[in-house]
Structures are given as C-alpha cells and as structure tokens.
Design a protein around this nucleic acid. Structure first.
Lengths: 208, 208
DNA sequence: CGCGTCATTGATGTGCATCAAGTGGTGTGG
DNA sequence: CCACACCACTTGATGCACATCAATGACGCG
C-alpha cells in the first residue's frame, strides 16, 4: 500500500482543528497529544498517543479534523489515505476489519477516560493514568517500572481534569508512601501493587 | 439487507458487559442508556441513545461488549450483523463508508463528553447536556423547547459526573433564573439563549 | 551567568459530595 | 376508593477535595 512518511519536530502540529481530513496517520516514532480547541474555554487534552497507534479518526465524520494533534517529541508518521484503504478493501477484507477494530478500540478507550473523569478522585485518576501508560509502553517492549513522561504536568492535568498543582501534590503523596520515585519527568514505580490498589480501592466510595 | 428486529420492555437489557458481539443495533423506537460495569466501583452511565442512533460499536474490538445497554422505555431495535455488512461492502462501498462515519461520530461525541467532564463546572455540564439532548431531538422533528426526560436524576448525574442532589439543585437554580420550567421529568426551556450562555460563558474560568 | 520554562509547596477559598429529613407522585391491595 | 408503601425528587446542614493565588526552587539554554 502506498503511504507517505512525514517527520515532525518537537511541538510541531500534525493537524489542526478544522484541517481537511486526508487520511489517518500511523505513528512510527515519537509521542503525540491530541487536544480540543473550543471557541470559548482553553484547550483540553483528549489523549496521548505513542508509536504503533493511530491518529486522525475524528476526521472521518465530516472530512475535517475536530482536534489538534501535536508532537511531544521529534516524531515520524505514515499517512494512510482512507479512500485508498476503502478501494483495497475488496481485496483485503481483513484490513477493513482491522480499521473497524482500531476505531472500536478508540471508542472503548474513550469510555474508560469518561469513567475516570466522571467517577474517580484525582489521585485515582493519576494512578490509572500511570498504569495505562506503563501498560502501553510495556506492550512495546519498554520497562514496566520506568517511564520518562513526554508531557508536562499541565498536559497531564488537562487530560485528567485537574490542575497542574494537583498533579504535583499527588506525585508528592505517592513519593511519601514509597509508591514511586519522581525526578522531573522521570518516574520510577517502586510498588506497582500499591499503585493498582490506589485505583481499584474505589468501590462504593464517591461512586456515582 | 437481512436484519432482525427485537422488542424490549422498559428497563430490559439489550446486551450486557461481556456478552458476545453479534452485530450492531439500530434503534427504531425508545431511548437507551449505556453504562460501564467495572469490577470495583458502581456503574457509570456513558451515554444516552435515541431512535436513529446505533448501539454496540464497543463490541467490535474484541468480539464482546464492554458496556451494558438498557432500554429506558419500551423500545424496538434492528440488529445489523457486522460480518454481513463486511460481505456486502464490495457491492455497497458507500455503506462501508457510512459505518466509518458512524464510528467516527461516536469518537467525536465522546471527546465532547470528555471535555465536559474534564473542564466544566456542574451547572455548565447540565446546561450542555440539555442543549445536546434537545438538539438531537429537534433533528428528529421534536420541539426545541420541550423535553420529557426518559431517565432519572441519578442517571443524569452519573453521566455528568455529579450526584443526583446536585442535578436537582442546578435545576432549582435554572428555575429561579427563569431559564427553564421543571415538572419532574418534564422540562420546558423558557430562555434558550441564557441556557447557551451558561455553557459558553466558561472562558478562562476554571479551564485546565 | 541570567533568563525562561517547568515543577514544587504553602495558605486560603469554594464547589460539590455527603448525610439526613421531608415532599410528592404512582401503584397496589384492602 | 382510600391507605399504605415505594420510589423519585427536593432541600438543608456540614465537610472535604480540589482550585486558586502566590512564592520559591530546579533545570536547561543562549
């Protein structure tokens, strides 16, 4: 299949809200963040994407993008023109099915985020975020216990629906409890069990 | 295309979390709610669906559903076996494209909910919820100013990430301001402009 | 070195949850 | 047809989680 590669530098934008949709993007290297840019109100980060994941699914609906995608590091993507995929689909039905799965995964993931934002305390949300992140990294061959966060505290806070100060304070509490070590962006998970408990402990408490 | 119809009574479940995925469902009549059922923690409503909308997109990913779909009223659905769609797709490429759009719409909508949950105050969330609801109903030929809510306060609260008491109090404030009339489930929107302002007023305030 | 960016930490305020009591509407059985 | 029970909803009093405001500290880069 014909794909076009594109390289981006740190903080460069892959596409903006409103840009014409030309196709999906498969991330080859580098982290991205997606964010809304509503008329009123400031930006809200809607997700972080890593190599092997796909960007641009929002654009299919009305042939233009409804969010911004920004590289958090120098990055490289492959663009996948969707109509090309549709043309090939008779030949490669399995590929079509794959596209469905990718989109379904996105839907399910977003439901998890909604669950987080709607019914967890902020410390639980940060724990869930860390677990999700290391889980995805581990699936790509990285360490289960070490992460270098590619985003700043403000982005984490925006994604998790809290202020950067709160992110910082929760890290402080996790350090105090001996659950993690934190050095700026460098996170070392000392007690993964305790981290998991921070999330799953919420049973009836605070539940809607 | 071969579709199977199914009738449901109020509070009957269309599919549960964990059920095998057999295909999508198009709603012919009646409202539905979808909710997560995590191991720990109580249910969280992830969406409300009305006639003309599609249920079950979450099941495509791993061939089983990851949420519950419950009829809020007596309802009727058409099941659409997805493999059937895939088989037909060479013939009806446009249909395939339509499936993509439906999935993309779901993704975009969920991002809106994330934005709400992550960066709005609870009164703004309720206003946004009402506006979204009447908008979707209006597109189906219903009134712009009158709604009969098919769900209880607790469901609204769960969806919007707040407690039912808070929902009630916010309605009280809207009544006080002369924005709406509320009689149990019956909502009459007196001042749609003021309602819109309740949402869009949030500029820098509380923004993440 | 000095400046800008990012992060931490403290003091105070407030939005919403929590707990609790009471109202109204609806369905059921006597 | 009314009495009772149940459920949805409302409304009040109190407390806590997190935002806000503000100051300081750490790192990187020209």
């Amino acid at each position: 299949m014909i794909t076009v590669r594109r390289k981006l530098k740190r903080y460069e934008t892959l596409f903006h809200n409103g840009d014409d949709f030309t196709g999906l993007y498969a991330i080859r290297s580098g982290f991205f963040k997606t964010s809304t840019a509503p008329e009123f109100g400031r930006e809200q980060v809607t997700g972080f994407q890593m190599p092997g994941e796909v960007l641009g699914l929002d654009g299919i609906l009305n042939d233009h993008h409804t969010c911004n995608a920004v590289a958090l590091q120098d990055a490289e993507v492959c663009s996948l023109p969707l109509d090309r995929i549709a043309e090939l689909s008779p030949l490669v039905k399995r590929l079509q099915r794959h596209v469905h799965k990718i989109m379904s995964r996105e839907i399910v993931q977003e439901q998890d985020v909604m669950l987080m934002l709607g019914s967890m305390r902020s410390d639980e949300r940060l724990a869930a975020f860390l677990i999700n992140l290391v889980g995805r990294l581990h699936a790509r061959g990285f360490s289960r216990s070490e992460v270098i966060l590619p985003m700043i505290r403000e982005d984490i806070g925006s994604y998790l629906g809290m202020k950067l100060e709160t992110v910082s304070r929760i890290f402080a509490r996790l350090i105090e409890r001996g659950v993690v070590e934190v050095n700026q962006r460098h996170i070392h998970i000392l007690d993964p069990v305790a981290l998991n408990q921070s999330v799953s402990q919420f049973k009836g408490v605070h539940a809607n």
